[in-house]
């Protein structure tokens, strides 16, 4: 696992049924592009998060394929429909095989 990787997610705590809610996510990650060279002139190998997904109660909200042009500490903002009380599951997939996860509950009154 790349060191110090930490996700941060913002989801409202409650919504009405069928409401669109705004979601913001950020994860600390170097997103080494594979284009940079170290002080000895050797290319630093690519090491990025290559995919991010957000699901709600097992159903897909967004699935993003990420390439090295995504900035360090990747940020995404999008909208999800909330049909019922449940859980958002967020998953980030690292080139090195690591998987970072976070989840947020939301209640529908």
């Amino acid at each position: 696992m790349a060191s110090g990787v930490k996700p941060r997610v913002k989801v409202p705590k409650s919504a009405s049924a069928g409401e669109a809610v705004e979601i913001k996510t950020l994860i600390s990650h170097q997103m080494e592009s594979g284009q940079r060279k170290d002080s000895d002139g050797n290319t630093i190998p690519r090491s990025i998060i290559n995919r991010f997904t957000c699901e709600f109660n097992g159903e897909m909200v967004i699935d993003i394929e990420m390439l090295p042009a995504i900035s360090t500490n990747p940020y995404f903002q999008f909208e999800a429909t909330v049909p019922e009380t449940g859980t958002f599951a967020f998953t980030w997939y690292d080139d090195d095989g690591s998987v970072y996860e976070d989840s947020k509950e939301i209640s529908v009154a």
């Binding site: 995404f76 903002q77 999008f78 429909t81």
Partner: peptide, 14 residues
């Protein structure tokens, strides 16, 4: 996916 409330997203790029 089916639960995307809008087909829109923001990010930051290089």
């Amino acid at each position: 996916g089916p639960l995307a409330a809008s087909q829109a997203a923001s990010t930051r790029i290089r």
